[in-house]
C-alpha cells in the first residue's frame, strides 16, 4: 500500500493508505483525530474542514495521497498546550455559537480561514456569505456570525479579548 507522510498539528507521521483513502479517514481512523467530522460525503456540509498548508479544505473530498508532504491543522491543533482556546473557539463558547457541536469543528476551521483572508475585516453580511460551505442545523447561524465578528477583532489585534455576549 502507498505511504503518505504529513505533518498534522505540528507532528509528522507516515501512514499506509489505500489509493481511495480520504484525508478525513486518515485523520480520524489512522491518527485518531476524531474532531474532524463527516456529515455529508459530498463536500456540502463542511463538517470535515481542516487547514492544509494554511488553506481550508474539505477533508471528505481530499484524497489522503493529495496530502503527502502537507502540513495539516485540525480542530485539535488550535488550542495552546496550556489549554487556552483559540480566539475563535473562545468566541464560539462565549456567544453560544454551537449546540450539538457536530458542525462546530468545520465551522471553526472555516471561520478562521475566512477571517485570516480578510485582514480588512468582514461585515455581518460578508461573514454569512463566507460561510456558504458550512451547514449548521441547530443554531440558525445567528450566534455563529456574532462569534466570528467578535473573534475577528481579536485575531486582527483590534481587541485584547473576546467581547462579552449580552442576552
Amino acid at each position: 500500500m502507498p505511504q503518505v507522510t504529513l505533518t498534522v498539528n505540528g507532528k509528522t507521521s507516515t501512514v499506509e493508505v489505500e489509493g481511495r483513502t480520504l484525508l478525513v479517514e486518515l485523520l480520524r481512523e489512522k491518527l485518531r483525530l476524531t474532531g474532524t467530522h463527516v456529515g455529508c460525503d459530498t463536500s456540502q456540509c463542511g463538517a470535515c474542514v481542516v487547514h492544509m498548508n494554511g488553506e481550508s479544505v474539505k477533508a471528505c473530498t481530499t484524497l489522503a495521497l493529495q496530502a503527502d508532504g502537507a502540513s495539516i491543522t485540525t480542530i485539535e491543533g488550535l488550542a495552546k498546550a496550556d489549554g487556552t482556546l483559540h480566539p475563535m473557539q473562545e468566541a464560539f463558547r462565549e456567544y453560544h455559537a454551537l449546540q450539538c457541536g457536530f458542525c462546530t469543528p468545520g465551522m471553526v476551521m472555516s471561520a478562521i480561514d475566512l477571517v485570516q483572508k480578510h485582514p480588512e475585516g468582514l461585515s455581518e453580511k460578508e461573514i454569512r456569505e463566507g460561510l456558504e460551505g458550512n451547514l449548521c442545523r441547530c443554531t440558525g447561524y445567528h450566534n455563529i456570525v456574532k462569534a466570528i465578528d467578535a473573534a475577528q477583532a481579536v485575531m486582527h489585534g483590534k481587541a485584547a479579548s473576546i467581547a462579552p455576549a449580552t442576552v
Binding site: 483525530l33 476524531t34 474532531g35 474532524t36 467530522h37 485540525t74 480542530i75 485539535e76 488550535l78 488550542a79 482556546l85 473557539q89 464560539f92 463558547r93 454551537l98 457541536g101 457536530f102 462546530t104 469543528p105 471553526v108
Partner: peptide
C-alpha cells in the same frame, strides 16, 4: 466540543 474532543 470546541476542542474536537466530543465523542460522537
Amino acid at each position: 466540543l470546541l476542542l474536537g474532543r466530543g465523542r460522537f
